[in-house]
Amino acid sequence: MFSRPSFIGDEAIAHAVAAHWLPDVAEIAYLPWGFGAHHWRVAAGGGTVLFVTLDQLEPRHTAATLEAAYAGAAALAAAGVDVVCAPLPARSSGRFTVGVQTGALSVTPWLDGRSHTEEEARGPRHVREVEAALHRAAPPPGLRRWTPRVGPEFAGELRARTARPWTSGPLGEEARAAIAAHDAAIARWTDRYLELADLALSRRETWVPTHGEPHNGNQVVGACGLKLVDWESLALAPRERDYADLIEAGAGDRLRPDPAMVELFALDWRLSEIVEYAHWFAAPHTGTDDDHTALEGLREELR
Rank of each mutant, 00 (worst) to 15 (best):
F7I: 05
V17K: 05
P32C: 05
H39L: 09
R41S: 11
G45L: 09
G45V: 07
G46T: 08
L50R: 10
T53L: 06
L54I: 09
Q56S: 13
R60F: 14
R60H: 11
A64R: 14
T65S: 15
Y70L: 12
A73E: 08
A74T: 01
L88S: 06
F96N: 06
G99H: 14
T102A: 13
S106L: 15
T108S: 14
L111M: 00
T117Y: 06
G123N: 08
H126D: 08
H126R: 10
L143V: 04
R145T: 11
P148V: 00
G151F: 02
A155Y: 02
E157A: 05
R161N: 02
T167A: 12
G169E: 03
L171Y: 07
G172P: 06
E173C: 01
A178Q: 10
A181I: 05
A184I: 03
A185R: 15
I186H: 01
Y193N: 02
E205D: 14
P209T: 02
G212T: 05
H215V: 05
V220H: 07
G222T: 11
W231S: 02
E232L: 06
A237Y: 00
A244K: 10
A249M: 12
A251D: 09
R256Y: 00
P259C: 02
D268M: 00
I274Q: 07
I274F: 06
Y277H: 12
W280G: 01
A282N: 10
R303S: 07
